[in-house]
């Protein structure tokens, strides 16, 4: 019962904050709303029993990535953005029924998927060793290659971000001269 209460609390905050992310005009408020979404999603993770993912969500997302956004917002003059209309209203009107139809479709697809999905096999393992150990064991055995690839992607992303964001970045004007 208490689980349900907590679940509704977090999911309600998440949805409300997501609405804020989409509809708030000021980018600073948007970042705060996003932070609220990320924290409440981390809460949902904890309810689902995925402590590791929840912790990483809080550490990486709610701290590191959000700080990224804050930095970028200080680099670009967001005050100018507020003066303009922050939304494409025509596209919004066009896409609103589309998004609703997408909702319906996704619900249908998932409901169909739930009815045919198998039931769990790791319950004993999880209760015996705890969630984090099992995740670690599988991550470093079954998904080891993917793990390494993701680390590579992160490295490349880091290098790419540094090169793109560098001030001495070569531009087309430099080439053409």
């Amino acid at each position: 019962m208490i689980q349900w209460l907590v679940f509704f609390l977090f999911s309600g905050i998440a949805v409300l904050s997501a609405l804020g992310v989409v509809f708030l005009p000021n980018p600073i408020y948007v970042i705060l709303a996003l932070l609220s979404v990320l924290v409440s999603v981390a809460g949902l993770f904890f309810i689902a029993g995925a402590e590791l993912v929840g912790a990483i969500q809080l550490l990486i997302y709610a701290v590191a990535v959000t700080v990224f956004y804050v930095f970028v917002l200080t680099a670009v003059p967001w005050e100018k953005a507020i003066k303009k209309d922050p939304f494409y209203r025509v596209e919004g009107l066009i896409s609103f029924p589309l998004v609703l139809a997408l909702y319906v479709e996704m619900v249908l697809v998932f409901l169909i998927g739930v009815s045919v999905s198998p039931k769990g096999q790791f319950r004993e393992l999880i209760t015996k060793f705890g969630n984090t150990e099992v995740v670690g064991a599988i991550l470093f055995s079954k998904y080891f290659l993917a793990f390494e690839l993701v680390s590579l992607v992160l490295l490349i992303g880091m290098i790419g971000a540094v090169i793109i964001g560098r001030k001495e970045a070569q531009t087309y004007e430099d080439h053409s001269s």
Partner: peptide
């Protein structure tokens, strides 16, 4: 928008 429309069609 087009991306989501394509997604919509695929789901359909």
């Amino acid at each position: 928008l087009f991306l989501s429309f394509g997604f919509f069609v695929l789901l359909l």
